[in-house]
Amino acid sequence: MNLFRIFGDLSHLASILILIRTIQTTDTIDGISFKTQGLYVLIFLTRYLDLLTFSYVSFYNTIMKLFFIGSSLYIVILLQRSRKTKPIAYKEMIMADTFKVQYLLGGSLVMALLFNYKFSLLEILWSFSVWLESVAILPQLFMLSKSGKAKSLTIHYIFALGLYRTLYIPNWFWRYWVEGKFDKLAVVTGIVQTLVYSDFFYVYYKKVLTGGGLGLP
């Protein structure tokens, strides 16, 4: 494990904790994309099927996988719960969440069928999950750009999530040079994902770090 990987994983962890804390402490779901959160459940469930094949890697690896599956499910349950407790806020959230996810799902499936390490169910689902993860934040970014404003904690959530994938890139350089290991699918999808975030990072830098509110173009 190198520092980039550790800090990458930590920022991924932080992003999820920030989101859960946002929902629980502010008692609001305003500005959160249900679709993006639903996609993450699908991503973790399809990626970590290897938990069932008992291909044990390490304690850390298993715990993190279980945490990502559990926490993504928990977030969806929290959002779903507001359907009863806060029907108006729930309806507003769903109404604002207009991104067509079927294109992301279809596109990821096509890419997974074209690019995978083996034409088997597990390998295709793994590939599907990395392609889908590279674009899963789009409904959330789309929502943000439409409303033009967002709660600062939602912004920090997206920032931490983007930071996680960005840190994985130097991690792969490290692993290539130090360990001689390389994974073309992970690297390509990781770069796609970081590019998706790059516009957001730019606006984050301009607006949040130099003061003022946030509004995506």
Partner: peptide, 10 residues
Amino acid sequence: ETNIIKHDEL
């Protein structure tokens, strides 16, 4: 051959 990066990363 198992792809080590796919195998041990998250």
